[in-house]
């Protein structure tokens, strides 16, 4: 999509124009859905988070102050994902959440997920720790540079690159 067109759509969204929001949803829903699905492994949760993201954009689009829109929208998406994790943990309690995660990892690593998209990639991603998985997906779907991601995470660029490198290398080994 040309930069000018996306700029016009964003301007429309800031004016609370419904048609512009509809276009924004068409442009970003695929990438955002992929990001949420790769992190949660659940279609239902990804649907919910996707909906939450766009509803939140209605309130927050006025806070976008230029710069990379990809970076901005993925930051909002990342916050939504971490809020979801926190809510989940609060609801279930730490021990129960841990047990559930172990079960989920086991399910992602081996068993069929019963109705949800079951692919090898999703199973192997379940074997990578949560933080690295989020970092890899953030980098892959947002198309942000390592420099931007490092700044956003307030960590040295070498640390960000090292984590992504190790995670992707492990994923490749698991997939072979």
């Amino acid at each position: 999509m040309p930069e000018k067109d996306l700029g016009q759509i964003i301007a429309g969204c800031r004016r609370a124009d419904e048609a512009s929001f509809s276009q924004l949803i068409d442009i970003y829903s695929g990438r955002m859905y992929g990001y949420f699905y790769r992190l949660t492994g659940s279609r239902d949760i990804s649907d919910e988070l996707l909906s939450e993201l766009f509803v939140k954009l209605v309130e927050r689009i006025g806070q976008y102050r230029g710069g990379s829109f990809n970076s901005w929208i993925f930051r909002v998406a990342s916050n939504i994902f971490y809020d979801h994790l926190r809510d989940k943990q609060r609801q279930q309690g730490l021990i129960e959440a841990h047990v559930k995660r172990l079960e989920e990892d086991e399910r992602l690593a081996g068993a069929d997920d019963g109705g949800e998209q079951s692919d090898q990639m999703q199973k192997q991603l379940g074997r990578i720790d949560e933080e690295t998985r989020e970092l890899i997906m953030f980098r892959y779907y947002s198309d942000m540079s390592f420099k931007e991601i490092a700044e956003m995470r307030s960590e040295p660029i070498g640390t960000t690159i090292s984590k992504v490198h190790r995670g992707l290398k492990k994923l490749r080994e698991l997939m072979e």
């Binding site: 509809s22 829903s29 859905y33 992929g34 766009f54 509803v55 995670g167 994923l171």
Partner: peptide, 24 residues
């Protein structure tokens, strides 16, 4: 690693989901 991710794309969200989000 990134090539591997590209070769295993995630399905798009269902049209019904997108429609419901647009309504919301």
């Amino acid at each position: 690693g990134e090539k591997l991710l590209r070769s295993n794309p995630v399905l798009e969200p269902a049209e019904a989901v997108k429609w419901r989000i647009k309504m919301t």
